[in-house]
Design a protein around this nucleic acid. Structure first.
Lengths: 333, 333
DNA sequence: CTGTTAGCGCATTCAC
DNA sequence: GTGAATGCGCTAACAG
C-alpha cells in the first residue's frame, strides 16, 4: 500500500507538504503541488482515514443503532440520516439489534471502541440501564422516537397525534372505538399513543369497554389476532357493545386487523372504521385505502443527523425537537 | 481518553503486557493480569480500534453499497449480512446510493479510504466503468443480485424462476400472458426475468402480443401505469386479444397492477391472474393474496457475508453462488 | 512557502 | 514471563 511517505519521496517534498495539498491547508507553491498531484495520480494513492483519525481524534463516522431495518419507519429514518450525513462527509456504521434489547448496550460499547464521533439511537424503550449507559458513554448521542431527560432527542408528537386522530373519529360520529396498542415500555408508541386515545375518549365522555383495548407486538399477524380478541371479548360477544371503529398504533397492525375483518365479512368502513400510524407506502393501496398518521420519518432522520453534527462541531443545537405530524384521511373511515 | 499507556502505568507493567492481556496472547503471570484487569475496570478503558487497525491493517469493517434501503429486498439482505458479520466481529458501513448510479463508484472510493476489509455490493447494473472500478479497487468484494466475470457473486436464479413461474401459469390454462418488467441494464431483474418469460412462452408456442410487455420502474405507481398501458394497447382495445394474466418482476409492481385492475373492476384471479417476485411480507395480506417468488434475501446476505469473510481470512470460498428460489402459490391466479 | 520533529494508540519483534 | 524499542500513516507545532 502506497503511503504519504512514498508520495513525498516521489514528489521530492516532505510529508508535511503532501499533507498540505491533501487537505488544502496552508501554503503550497504551485510547483510543489503539481508534483505531488502527479505522484498521487500515478500511484493511485489513497490516504488512510485510520491514521488520520488516530491523529485528529475525529473519525467522521456516526453509529446508528436500530431495532430492525425491516420496517418502513426505520428504513426511512436511516435514509434521512444517510442523506444528511453524507453531505457533511460522515459515514454510517449500522448496528442492528434485531429487536434484542440487550444488544443496544452492547452496541454502545462497540461504537465506543470504534471511536465514532456521534451516535443516533432509534429507540424502542427508555429503560434505566440503557439511559445510564447513554449518559456515561461520553459520545454525543441523539435518540429518535423517545424522549429522555438529559439526552438529545427527536420525537414525534405521539400523544397529540393520537388525540387528534381519536377526535376526528368522534366528530365523524364514531363513539365506540377500540384500540390496538403495544407494550408500554415503548413509551412513545405504547404509552403515549394509548394515553392520547384514552384521554380524548374521556374528554368526550365516551366509554372504552374492557376488551376493546388490546396489546399486540409489531407485526401484521399480531394485529390480526388483536382484532380477533377485540371482537370476541365478553361485552362484544353479548352484543351489548360492538365497537364501530378501531385505531391501531402502526399501519402493520391496522393491516392485520383489516385482514381479520375481511375474513369475517366485516366491511370497512361501513361496519368498522380503522386507522393506523406511520403512513406506510402500502397504506394507500389497500382496499380501502388506510387512514394514517404521517410522522415524516426521513425528516426525523435528517434532523437527528443535523443536530448531532451541530453538536459534534461545537455549533448551536437543539436539545429536544418534537416533529409535527400530518393526518392522512382516506377511505378506511 | 485513557490509553494503554495509562493502564500500563497504573498496573506497573509495560504496555506490552497490557496488550497481551487485551488480546490474550503470549504468557502473562496471574498477578500481572489481575493488576491490569483492575486498572481497566477502574478507568473504563476501551482500546482504540483505530490505532489497532493502523497497526494490524485490519479494520473489521465491511462496506455495504446499496441502491436504496427502502425496499424489502434490500433491508432483508442487509439484515442477513449484519447477522452473519456480527458473528465474526465485523461491523457494517452503510453506503446508500439512493438510486444514483454514479454514487456507486464514489462509494467504492470512499470505502477504500476507510480501508474496509471487504465490500458487499447490492448491484443494480453491471456497467463497464463500475466493473472496471471493482476490479482495480483491490479489496475483496462480492456482488449480490448480478453476476460479472471475475467478480464474486451471490445471485438468484432469475431466469429459471421466471420460466417456472410462466410454465405454471401455462399449465393452469393461461395462454395470453402479459409482462411488466424493468430496464434491461438491470441484467438480473430486467433482462433475465423477461427472457425467462419469453423463452417459456415461445417453448409452448404461445404468442406474446406487442403491447403486452411493458417496462416500469421500481415503484407501485409504475406498476399501476404499466398495467394500464397493457390494457389500452391496440390489440387489446380491439378486443382481439386481451391478456388473461400478468407477471410482474417485483411484488410492488404487481401491487400497482392490482390496484389498477381493482379500479377498473377487473377481478383477480377470475378475469386476470397475476404474480410477482420477492415474497414481500404484504403479499400474503393482499386481496387476493399474491402469488410470488421467494428468493430468500436474508440468505443471500448471509452467504455473501460468509463468503466474503472466508475470502478475507484466506479460507476457501465460492466464487459464484446461485441461490435457489421457491414459488409461493396463492390465490391471485 | 517548506521541512524537521514529535507524537496519536497500539502490536510486534527481539532481547532479557 | 516481561519490557524496550520500533513503526503503522498521518497531522500539527515550530522553525526556518
Amino acid at each position: 500500500m502506497v503511503t504519504i511517505k512514498d508520495i513525498a519521496e516521489m514528489a521530492k517534498v516532505s510529508r508535511t507538504t503532501v499533507s498540505r495539498v491533501l487537505n488544502s491547508s496552508g501554503y503550497v507553491s504551485e510547483d510543489a503541488r503539481k508534483r505531488v498531484e502527479k505522484a498521487i495520480e500515478e500511484t493511485g494513492y489513497i490516504p488512510s482515514q485510520h491514521a488520520k483519525s488516530l491523529r485528529t481524534k475525529k473519525t467522521k463516522i456516526v453509529g446508528v443503532i436500530l431495532p430492525t431495518i425491516q420496517t418502513e419507519t426505520s428504513s426511512r429514518i436511516v435514509t434521512g440520516i444517510g442523506e444528511e450525513l453524507s453531505k457533511h462527509g460522515y459515514e454510517i456504521i449500522l448496528a442492528n439489534t434485531n429487536l434484542k434489547k440487550e444488544k443496544e448496550i452492547e452496541f454502545l460499547e462497540l461504537l465506543k471502541v470504534r471511536r465514532v464521533d456521534g451516535i443516533i439511537l432509534i429507540a424502542t424503550n427508555t429503560e434505566p440501564d440503557l439511559v445510564e449507559k447513554i449518559k456515561d458513554i461520553n459520545i454525543p448521542l441523539v435518540m429518535i422516537g423517545q424522549a429522555v431527560d438529559g439526552v438529545m432527542s427527536i420525537t414525534y408528537d405521539d400523544y397529540n397525534a393520537a388525540r387528534e386522530l381519536t377526535h376526528t373519529f368522534i366528530t365523524k360520529g364514531y363513539r365506540e372505538i377500540a384500540f390496538i396498542g403495544v407494550d408500554e415500555t415503548d413509551r412513545a408508541v405504547g404509552y403515549l399513543r394509548k394515553k392520547g386515545f384514552l384521554d380524548e375518549m374521556e374528554a368526550h365522555g365516551l366509554k372504552v369497554n374492557e376488551g376493546w383495548v388490546q396489546e399486540a407486538i409489531f407485526d401484521i399477524d399480531s394485529g390480526h389476532d388483536a382484532m380477533e380478541r377485540i371482537l370476541s371479548s365478553p361485552s362484544v360477544s353479548d352484543q351489548k357493545s360492538v365497537p364501530k371503529a378501531v385505531i391501531a398504533v402502526t399501519d402493520r397492525l391496522a393491516i392485520g386487523a383489516m385482514s381479520y375483518l375481511k375474513k369475517e365479512g366485516i366491511r370497512v368502513p361501513e361496519d368498522m372504521g380503522i386507522a393506523g400510524f406511520g403512513a406506510s407506502e402500502i397504506a394507500q393501496y389497500l382496499d380501502p385505502p388506510l387512514t394514517t398518521v404521517d410522522n415524516q420519518n426521513e425528516k426525523a432522520g435528517e434532523k437527528a443527523a443535523r443536530q448531532l453534527i451541530n453538536r459534534i462541531t461545537g455549533r448551536e443545537y437543539s436539545e429536544k425537537i418534537v416533529l409535527n405530524y400530518r393526518l392522512i384521511w382516506r377511505k378506511s373511515l
